[in-house]
Computed example of a mutant assay.
Amino acid sequence: MTTTELTLTTDTDAALTSFARRYRDAGNVGMQVLSVVGGQAENLLERLPDRVKDQLETATERALHVSLDAAGRTRGGRLPDGGKWLNTAVTTAMGAAGGFGGLPTALAELPVTTTVLLRAIQGIAESHGFNPTQQSVRADCIRVFAAAGPLAKDDGADLGFLAARVTLTGSAVHGLIARVTPRLATALGQKLAAQTVPIIGAVAGAATNFAFTTYYQEMAHIQFGLQRLSHDTGIPDDMLIEELRLRIEAMERR
C-alpha cells in the first residue's frame, strides 16, 4: 500500500495536520531569536573561538551521556515532571544566567539545559504511553535531538529523526548518541554563540533557551504522537511520516 492508496479516518487526518502545524510553528520560534540576536544562523558559529568550536562535539557528546543518566534518575525519584511551560521557564532562566556571564557561564549551563530538555522529552514519551526506562524508548528520546535545531532553516524535507526504530541494547544507545552528536553540536554551537552577543547576552541566552525548549518538546510530541498513532491505527510508521511530510511541504508553499 502506498501513501496515495492510504485512506485516513477523520481523526487520523486531523492528528497528522496537527503534527504538521506543531512542526512548522516550532521552527518559527527560532526566527524570533534571530531577530533578537541580529544575525543569520549560519554566521553564529563564526562568533565562537576556534578552541570552543574544536571541542564542541566532545562537549556535546559528554553532555548527552551525563544528561541521559541524570534525566532518568530525577524522573525516577520524587521530582515530578514540570510540564511544558515550567520546563520552558526553567531553561529560559538558565539561558539568561548563562548568557549574562558570557561564554564561560554559557558552556557551564549547556549540560544542565540538556538534562532538563531530555527529562522533558522522557516525560512526553510517558504521556503518550511509552516507558522511558525501556532501551528503545531511551533511544527515541535521544533521536529527538537529531531534528534540526530551532535556528536552522528546515522546509520539512528533513524528518530523519522519525526514522524506523529498532530494538537496542544499552551500548547501542551510546552509539546512537555518537551519531546524533554532530547535528546537536551544531545547534548548541549556535546557541552558545547567541549567548555571547555583547550587551544582550542574557536576553539572547533566555531567547535561545526558550526556542530550544519549545522546539524539542514539540519534536518529542511529534515523535511519540506518531508512534502512538501508528500503534492505535495499525498504519506503518513510514506511511504516517510520508503523510506528515506532504502536509508540512504544503504548509511551506502557502
Rank of each mutant, 00 (worst) to 15 (best):
T12R: 09
Q40V: 00
T58K: 09
G76R: 09
G99N: 08
V37N: 02
G39P: 00
T58F: 07
Q32C: 00
Q40H: 08
T10W: 11
L48R: 05
T17R: 15
W85K: 12
A59F: 00
T74D: 07
L107N: 08
R51F: 12
M31V: 01
L103F: 10
R22H: 08
T114V: 06
R78D: 15
W85I: 04
D50I: 09
A93Y: 08
G77Q: 10
R62Y: 00
A96M: 15
R24T: 12
Y23T: 03
D69A: 11
T58W: 01
G38P: 03
L64P: 01
V29I: 14
Q55T: 09
T9P: 14
S67F: 01
P111M: 04
L107H: 08
A20F: 10
A15G: 07
M31E: 13
R62G: 06
A108Q: 12
A93W: 05
V116K: 02
N28F: 06
M31P: 00
E46M: 08
M94W: 06
P80S: 11
M94E: 11
L68Q: 05
D54V: 07
A41Y: 05
G30F: 03
R75S: 11
L117C: 05
T74S: 09
R73Y: 02
L34A: 04
V29W: 04
V37D: 02
L44S: 04
T9Q: 14
H65P: 00
G76T: 05
A70R: 07
L45F: 02
Q32E: 07
G83N: 10
L48K: 06
K84S: 13
G38I: 04
L107W: 07
T74H: 02
R51M: 03
E61K: 03
E61D: 04
R75C: 01
P80I: 10
H65I: 06
P80C: 07
V29K: 05
V66K: 01
E42I: 04
R75L: 15
A41N: 03
G38R: 02
G82D: 13
T114F: 01
T88N: 09
D81L: 11
P104F: 09
A59L: 14
G38S: 03
V66C: 00
L16R: 13
T74I: 15
L56Y: 02
V52Q: 05
A96Y: 11
P49W: 06
T17E: 15
A20H: 11
T113C: 03
V29L: 07
L8D: 15
R51Q: 09
E109P: 00
A70F: 01
H65S: 03
T114N: 02
G39E: 14
V66D: 13
R51H: 12
H65V: 09
Q55M: 06
R24A: 12
V36F: 09
R73K: 11
G30T: 05
L110R: 10
G39K: 00
G38T: 03
T114D: 02
W85M: 12
D69F: 01
L107M: 14
E109I: 14
A89D: 12
D69C: 00
L68E: 07
R24Y: 07
T60K: 02
A70M: 03
A108T: 13
E46V: 02
T58I: 06
M31T: 06
G83L: 11
S67Q: 01
L64A: 02
T9W: 11
G99S: 10
L56E: 05
D25H: 08
A89Q: 11
P80M: 08
A97I: 15
D13C: 10
L34H: 01
A20S: 15
E46Y: 07
